[in-house]
Amino acid sequence: MNYSLFDDASDVQPWTEAICEGALILRHFSIPHETALLDGIQQISSKHPFRHLRTPNGHRMSVAMTCCGEVGWVSDSEGYRYSAYDPENGEHWPTMPDSFYSLAVQAADEAGFPGFKPDSCLINQYQERSRLSLHQDKDEKNLGAPIVSFSLGIPATFLFGGMQRTDPVQRYYLAHGDVVVWGGPARLRYHGVALIKEAAHPLLGPQRINLTFRQAT
């Protein structure tokens, strides 16, 4: 299926916005590839549906999630961790589509992180009033590898802080097709997503889909 909003998506010109040393936004990066991304999301979520995980203290997360790759990220009363199995059905997570892998590697390379080998993709579904509180991505064994985060659907405000939770936070508007990459000196900076406002996207309706690629194992 052709999802593109553009007559010729190859005419969309990407550009780069720096955040800080080790972190940047690749604006419009994934628009030429949105059909492959959305097809992959549909295939994965049809077998492993989005679900709202619970934090170790029992709080229901406002963001729904599914995963693909060698391991997926899970949260329950036992804590936060990566697992090769979907806790909902005990099955292995779906294999990461080749298109996902190649685009994540390309984005990392363009951001100055060659050699990225993602083995996990967290697929988050945001809807009105969803949010993601400030946190560090530190469950991965290889903290030398960057985080590569694709945005699709309605816009969001990306929060990017410092090495301490109380450090000042920068706010960045993320639109459909934008990709954020951070690693190196920025790898353990706190980050999150502000409360999602009511909106509708021509392709995805009232939701934002975020694909976050990690080298977890």
Rank of each mutant, 00 (worst) to 15 (best):
S46H: 11
S83T: 03
V74R: 06
T166P: 05
N124S: 14
D137W: 02
E128T: 15
A156Y: 02
W93D: 07
R214M: 04
P168E: 02
S77Q: 15
D137G: 02
G22T: 04
L5A: 12
L5N: 10
P202Y: 08
M65D: 02
S62P: 06
P155V: 07
G22K: 11
S75L: 07
W182M: 02
D119P: 06
S30P: 05
Q136I: 12
P185H: 05
C68H: 00
L26W: 09
A145P: 06
G22D: 01
G40Q: 00
A145C: 07
R214S: 01
R131D: 10
R208A: 00
L37V: 10
S62E: 04
S30L: 11
W182C: 01
T55M: 03
L203M: 14
G192N: 04
A186P: 07
S120G: 06
L174I: 14
A216H: 01
L134S: 09
V179K: 03
P146E: 01
G22F: 01
D76C: 03
L37S: 02
T217E: 15
A104P: 04
K197M: 10
S120E: 13
L134P: 01
A175Q: 14
H176N: 14
P97Y: 02
G58P: 05
K197A: 12
D86A: 04
R54G: 05
A156S: 14
A194I: 01
T35M: 07
Q127Y: 09
G162Q: 01
G58M: 00
T217I: 09
P49L: 08
H28S: 08
G69Q: 09
G144E: 12
D98I: 14
R165K: 15
L195V: 15
P185C: 01
H176R: 08
Q215H: 08
L53A: 11
L204D: 08
P87E: 00
E88P: 04
G40E: 02
Y80M: 01
C20L: 03
F29T: 10
D8P: 05
Y82F: 04
R189C: 14
M163F: 11
G183V: 01
S151V: 01
A23W: 02
H201L: 07
D86E: 11
Q207G: 12
R165W: 10
A18I: 13
P185I: 11
A186E: 05
H33S: 14
T212Y: 07
Y172K: 06
H48P: 00
G115D: 05
L122K: 03
W73A: 03
L204N: 08
G177N: 06
L53E: 13
S45Q: 15
L24A: 10
Q170E: 15
E17Q: 15
G58W: 00
P97L: 05
S133V: 14
I44E: 03
S62H: 06
R51Y: 13
T212P: 11
L195P: 08
A64L: 05
